[in-house]
Amino acid sequence: MWRDALLVVGKDLRIEARSRVVVNQVAPFAVLVLLLFAFALGPDRSPMAHAAPGLFWVAVLFCALLAVQRSFAVESGEGTRDGLRLSGLDPAGIFLGKTAAVTVQLLLLEVLLTVGVVLLFGNGVRSVGALVLTSVLGTAGLAAVGTLYGALSSGLRVRETLLPLLLLPVAAPVLLAGTRAWQAALGIGTSTSGNPWTSVLVVFAAVYLALGCVIYGPLLEAM
């Protein structure tokens, strides 16, 4: 399972390294979203700095949609879906591999977004460790559930419109907990501890990683 996961994550990241779709299209989109938030909340810095954690996670959600769509667009052309199914790889391995690839891409985007939030919105950082930890946990959960829904909607003609409707409500706890944990890590508002919210992120990621390992086999048959 782990070896298969490594194979799949290597394949996906290699495709990304050669096609540069996420770097050339999704990364500029992420920056654009930050700019749009700035336009929406006005030139005054204090509302922006206050809303920064939420805006960060909303931007991450949008980027996750695009990354998941890209991750399964890669599998749709020239019979690659059948190739993957016939390859004899462990379904759980495929799931973990694709989730890991999406996680890595999203984490790189989040580094960019974090720099953008700090520079553009003028936030200070109270705890870098908590920031990194919550981002990694939230992103892993997001990528796991995104990979599940990506596989579920891939191959359907309506996948572009269906995926956001399916993924965004389920990802709501990530947005909620991630925002609160970030507020604590950035030192915004009255929240002093982000610990309970970090545990929500842990549970979310663990539940969807486990569910994905179990359910990805039957899911591949529906693709």
């Binding site: 559930v145 389920v170 709501a172 706890p173 929500v200 569910l211 359910i215």
Partner: peptide
């Protein structure tokens, strides 16, 4: 499968909210 993925989310949503 879609129903199961959503169902697993319901308790998490419940507690976090």
């Amino acid at each position: 499968i879609g129903a199961v993925i959503a169902a697993v989310d319901v308790p998490i949503v419940h507690f976090s909210v």
